[in-house]
Simulated scan of single mutants.
Amino acid sequence: MRLYLTALNPTDSVLDGLLPAADRLGLPVTVLTDQPAAWPTDPTRLSGAEVSGADVRDVRAVLDAVYRGDPPLALLSNSDHLQTPTALAANYLGLPGKDWRATLRGKDKHLTRRTVADAGLDRVAAVVLGPDDDPGRAATVPFPAVVKPREGVASEDVYLVDGPSELLRRVTEIRGRRPGQALLVEEYLAGDLHTLETLGDGERIAVVGGWRTGLGPPPTFTEEALDWAPELPAPVLAQVLAQLDALGVGFGACHTEFVVSDGRARLIEVNYRLIGDRVDLVMAELLDLPLFAHVLRIHAGDPLPALPDPVRVPRHARVEWVCADRSGTLVAAPGPVDATGPAGVRLGSRPLRTVGVAAPLTGTNRDYLAALHAIGPDPATVREALRDFRAAHRWTIDE
Rank of each mutant, 00 (worst) to 15 (best):
L267N: 00
E166I: 00
G356V: 08
L183I: 03
A21C: 09
V147K: 10
A306Y: 11
A117H: 03
R60L: 06
L196Y: 02
S47L: 01
V279T: 12
T362R: 14
P310N: 06
V259K: 08
K107D: 07
T86I: 11
H316W: 09
S47R: 05
P131H: 00
V153I: 15
P218N: 09
V185T: 06
T6L: 09
L168P: 06
L75C: 13
D288G: 11
T340E: 15
A65V: 00
V158L: 14
G163E: 02
G200H: 03
E285I: 02
A234F: 05
S52N: 12
D134A: 14
D34A: 14
E187D: 03
L104E: 13
L287K: 01
E257R: 12
R278K: 05
L95E: 02
L189D: 03
P233V: 13
E151A: 02
L289E: 08
Q181K: 12
V240P: 07
V282S: 08
Y188S: 07
V382K: 10
V357S: 01
L199C: 11
D122R: 02
L286S: 06
G209C: 11
A371R: 09
L25F: 08
G328K: 14
L386Y: 05
A61V: 12
R273E: 05
V62R: 07
N91C: 04
G216Q: 11
N91Q: 14
A238C: 01
R57F: 15
G180I: 01
P149F: 04
A182D: 14
A138R: 00
D157S: 10
W321V: 08
K109I: 07
V208N: 08
A238Y: 02
G26N: 04
Y188V: 01
L15A: 12
A61P: 08
V382I: 13
L291T: 01
R150Q: 10
W228E: 09
D338F: 04
Q35W: 06
S47N: 07
H373S: 13
